[in-house]
Design a protein around this nucleic acid. Structure first.
Lengths: 151, 151
DNA sequence: GTAAGTGCAAATGGTTTGCATCGAA
DNA sequence: TTCGATGCAAACCATTTGCACTTAC
């Protein structure tokens, strides 16, 4: 079970799965597809464990990221977003499509960058371990709205 | 000349090329390859025009970005970086390779994503207008250092 | 008992905003 | 004389940190 794996990862680095941590992990599991901000994780977590502090949420998100349990995203909107790692090998091919208008985030997968990473390593000597690819544009719905407004 | 084009762009949106703006643009031109932060632009600009405020720098970088004169980057280090747009068609194929260790930023060009953008438009209905691609890893120098430390 | 974990409040740091003033068409 | 532009200080907001207290091995 996922939570057992989380506990193991924590204990290997001499950390405990405290009630607060468990609540945070539960929230991340329940919203695995939603890219929550720290503030959102905090609000949801309070429903499960009302006496939690925002600083605790931040500290734990940082720890969980360091342990490879959650992944941190940056959409350029001034706050970080977090997602629990479920599978991991496909993680690397996971990119985002962001609507400039409504902020809607669409996930998509593509291994297209693998080739490019190898080429970069060859050409520049860089040892590439990760990448971040975001596309910005207008989602179909906002395109429609914009056409209606113009008409 | 580049600055004439900047002036035209500004005037078309009923803005003036003030001494402060000119100083900012001069700084951006002189550091066209350096991805300056707002703070850095501020410091360099003070050399040319000592009586400038940080808020003015921020306001103008925002304006210049809106007018398509500068491009804003976000390296995920908690501050934005700015670069003047020189050519523009190749702009789109301009990506970054960031060393996790020393922060060194290497630029590279590739049109590989064009295909992907078209495929995304077809599959999702998204109208993609821009993208941001960053690779993270270790530069050759930091790999060497790490090997030396291990030995 | 000791080291990890927590809540709270204060601090931090990049960025934005309110406001009175200034300056060019 | 009007409206854009500026400098300054204060405000903002996501995040981090200091600190005293708590909790689990």
């Amino acid at each position: 079970m996922l939570k057992d794996w989380v506990r193991t990862q924590l204990e290997q680095d001499s950390h405990r799965l405290t009630p607060q941590r468990e609540a945070i992990v539960d929230v991340l599991i329940a919203n695995a597809n939603d890219h929550l901000s720290a503030e959102e994780v905090y609000m949801f977590t309070r429903d499960l464990h009302s006496e939690i502090g925002l600083a605790t949420v931040y500290r734990n998100l940082e720890l969980l990221e360091k342990l490879g349990i959650v992944h941190r995203f940056d959409y350029g909107d001034g706050q970080n977003r977090y997602e629990i790692r479920l599978g991991d090998s496909e993680e690397h091919y996971h990119h985002h499509l962001i609507c400039r208008e409504c902020g809607y985030i669409h996930e998509f997968h593509s291994d297209l960058l693998e080739t490019l990473e190898r080429r970069i390593a060859e050409e520049t000597g860089f040892d590439v371990s990760d990448h971040c690819l975001r596309f910005f544009g207008l989602c179909a719905q906002c395109q429609r709205k914009q056409r209606d407004n113009d008409a």
